[in-house]
Design a protein around this nucleic acid. Structure first.
Lengths: 200, 200
DNA sequence: GTCTATAGCGGGATAGAC
DNA sequence: GTCTATCCCGCTATAGAC
């Protein structure tokens, strides 16, 4: 690849990142519909025309971010399964990682966007399906095996595992939302959250 | 009041209710910004012109609903305090009521709207202030005394009470969101949620 | 690669007929 | 009290200059 072209590619990658970073802020604060391309352009400190040079549409930007968010969520679950220890310990490890992650605003904002995407109808069909369709692999589904193992081993309370998983993620979601509204909001210790699972 | 006028008043009240009911659905599903007056009109089965006959603006409808939602939330807390029993028992009673409330879609939708209102910037200043401003009386603040009493009595775990309250409402919020997306989603028992509070 | 100007459309809000 | 027609603004997306 000629020298010039390499430089151009670098610029292009940088710009895309820059736009995505800005879009994350704007989408999280205002929501997919209320977010204006001009807001994103302003936040990224470039013209709104340029945004369209890098992305086909507002929708495409949003979709890109949602996928990123989903990947990251599933990543933690995957990592948790690779840890060594009992299922309960793996869950605790995962909870710690997630709660730590809330200190990074990027993670929290990604989370919020994912939530908007699955909560609101005013979002492209494609995105909703990706998150909530038949084929979708949700955090709840992915965490289920871990919970069931823990129940077999007797560490985890014998409640319906789906209910447990939902309760767990409900809690995570709720905290993320709080964190957005009030960035100094105290985040509980993983141990506190884990009390729900424990079959003492 | 003359007969005719009474009838008119009744019609007006009905219409207002009808519009609010429809708006609740539409706002919850699409969000304040994406919701179109024409959507609301269609849902209420009347013309969009009529909506403006009863409400000044889309904003006014939204505000009305948010206030209603807030009143209802605070109502449960107030009722809980009136119950007899230990603070922990009062909290459990409250949790039961809230979880039961989730079976009613109206409650859940109101909740979701309240959340949108406090999460998104794309919402009139007045509404945001009402919920999150300095003067706002939040569920967290209102529940704090109950938690602190429980800690003095030793029933409730000795974690920072604000963290506890936030954690608790995070649960509730998260569950409500889940319930919206997936209306058959299993709701946990109050006992399960209360495990977080307990200082066994 | 980046900008400015503008087309084109959709929706909030209003006017006025019935 | 209810409806239809319409004004008007703002936003997405594109065209074209630099």
């Amino acid at each position: 690849m000629p020298r010039q072209e390499q430089q151009n590619k670098q610029i292009r990658d940088e710009r895309k990142e820059q736009i995505l970073r800005a879009a994350l802020q704007v989408f999280a604060r205002r929501g997919m519909v209320a977010a204006k391309i001009s807001d994103i352009a302003k936040e990224a400190a470039l013209s709104h025309g340029l945004v369209y040079h890098y992305f086909k549409s507002k929708e495409e930007i949003f979709t890109t971010l949602v996928k990123k968010a989903s990947d990251r969520s599933m990543g933690v679950i995957y990592d948790a399964k690779q840890q060594r220890g009992t299922p309960l310990e793996k869950l605790e490890w995962m909870t710690e990682k997630i709660l730590e992650g809330m200190e990074s605003s990027e993670n929290t904002l990604l989370f919020l966007i994912m939530m908007q995407a699955s909560t609101s109808d005013a979002v492209p069909e494609e995105v909703k399906d990706f998150l909530t369709g038949e084929e979708a692999i949700s955090p709840v589904k992915a965490t289920l095996p871990l919970i069931m193992e823990g129940q077999e081993e007797g560490d985890i309370v014998q409640t319906n595992p789906v209910t447990l998983a939902i309760t767990f993620y409900a809690f995570i979601q709720g905290l993320a939302i709080n964190k957005i509204q009030w960035s100094d909001c105290p985040i509980p210790d993983a141990k506190l959250v884990m009390k729900v699972f424990r079959s003492y």
